[in-house]
Computed example of a mutant assay.
Amino acid sequence: MGGRSGAVRLTPEVFREIVPAARPRLPGADAVLPYLRRMDEARSYSNFGPLLTAFEARLAERFETGTRIVTCVNATQVLTLTLQALDLPADSFVIVPSYTFVATAHAVIAAGLKPWFVDVDIDDWMLQPDTVRAGLAAAPGPVSAVIPVAAFGAMPDLDGWKALRRDTGLAVILDGAAAFDQARQSDIPVVVSLHATKVLGIGEGGFLATGDEDLAARVRQLTTFGFRGSRAAQIVATNAKLSEYAGAVGLAALDNWDSDRLQYLRTSRLMRAAMTYLPEVRFQAGWGVDWVTSVCSVRLPDGTTDHVEQTLAAADIGTRRWWDQGCHTNTAFAGYPCDALPATERLGQSVIGLPFAIDMDERQISRISGALVTALAGL
């Protein structure tokens, strides 16, 4: 057994750290523990106990006066139940961008409605009010609502959507799943995700923010067996409440939000600085400067994502196509109508999610930018 002839020489490359596409961070156990102790003292664990009530109140403080908050088990359910609460005509169409996460379309179908996939703007990656106006005459059937999506956390033109609602009578709901940082207005109902991958995460959860008291009450009723003021089920509903445990994590997350936001800004700006000499890598307008989100989605030259993805993977750097090629390419939605989608198709071949986390360090960021230099030089 003596000798070293069979030993494997371990070079530094063997120990190269994998940089994952996402590495969420929720409040630590020490931050949540005081709230868990309060929960135990109250012996209240669900059914809108003091922690969840406090969490909803603190969320409401982030919005304009008069905003109602309705929490739910996840943002997809909130969106579904909000559509149901609006009592839209069954089987009517809801205009949605194809360039969004599949949850948007799933929610429409679960609400008994049909998605109509429409194209987005090539520059800000979002559905535009003028596109909806121009397309209504060619609608595949009766249209009852439209769901603009805040692309990866960027806020759309809310005034334009208010004008469209006023002029057309269409219901408008903002899918602001990733827009916790920017969501401040509730005149247009907005659904925000509290998933672990979001900037304010609790594991699973979501909420509706609306200035419409009746809408909030109807959505709340739908989350709690159809109860409203009594334990008699007045409507067919479900059980989609958040527990006190979720409220505890949410309160701890809000306690640290200001500090976390600064860390997201810091990491975002380090990413921007690292790409200074890579003009081919284009960030969303205002990303990491005016607003923060939990992902770093960048646009590369058209048709280059496959090559870049493969080059980074070879360097043990993860990437993610968060919205892939668009909802219309998913088998689940093959039977639903869609417009011509040239911008969506271009974005599907040019937008990629680079690794991003609140505590990503300069060494990891340097590896990412170096790998991008290699990938883009090979085009």
Rank of each mutant, 00 (worst) to 15 (best):
Y245E: 13
R16H: 12
L372M: 10
E345P: 01
G303N: 11
A7H: 11
A332V: 05
M275Y: 00
A334Y: 03
S144M: 07
E17R: 15
F15A: 13
V102W: 00
V118N: 00
I188A: 01
S44G: 09
Q185A: 12
C327M: 05
T311N: 08
P34W: 11
I235G: 01
W257H: 01
A90Q: 14
A138H: 15
T305D: 13
R58A: 08
L33N: 10
P148K: 00
D175N: 14
L376S: 01
L127D: 01
D130Y: 08
P97Q: 09
Q284F: 04
A332C: 03
A216Q: 07
A233R: 15
Y336G: 06
A57V: 06
G205F: 04
E280F: 05
A179N: 07
G378S: 15
P301Y: 07
G353R: 00
G160P: 06
L376H: 04
S294T: 02
V249R: 10
T374E: 13
L136G: 01
G112C: 12
S46D: 12
C296S: 07
F180L: 00
Q349S: 15
Q182F: 04
S350R: 03
T11F: 14
N74C: 08
S369P: 06
G378P: 02
V94E: 05
L136P: 00
N47V: 11
I109Q: 08
T331I: 12
K114D: 00
K198F: 03
P27K: 00
L88Y: 07
E362A: 15
K114P: 05
V94L: 11
N330S: 03
G49F: 08
I352S: 04
C327G: 03
H195A: 15
A145Q: 05
P24L: 09
Q284P: 01
Q364R: 14
G335T: 10
G286A: 07
D260G: 01
F93C: 02
L312E: 06
L59V: 03
A139C: 07
Q263H: 15
D181A: 06
T276D: 13
F101A: 12
T131C: 10
P12L: 11
T82F: 04
L52Q: 09
Q84F: 00
F93P: 05
Q182Y: 02
K162T: 02
G211A: 11
A139E: 02
T104Q: 02
L174F: 02
A375L: 11
I69Y: 02
D214E: 13
R38S: 12
A54I: 05
T267I: 08
L300Y: 05
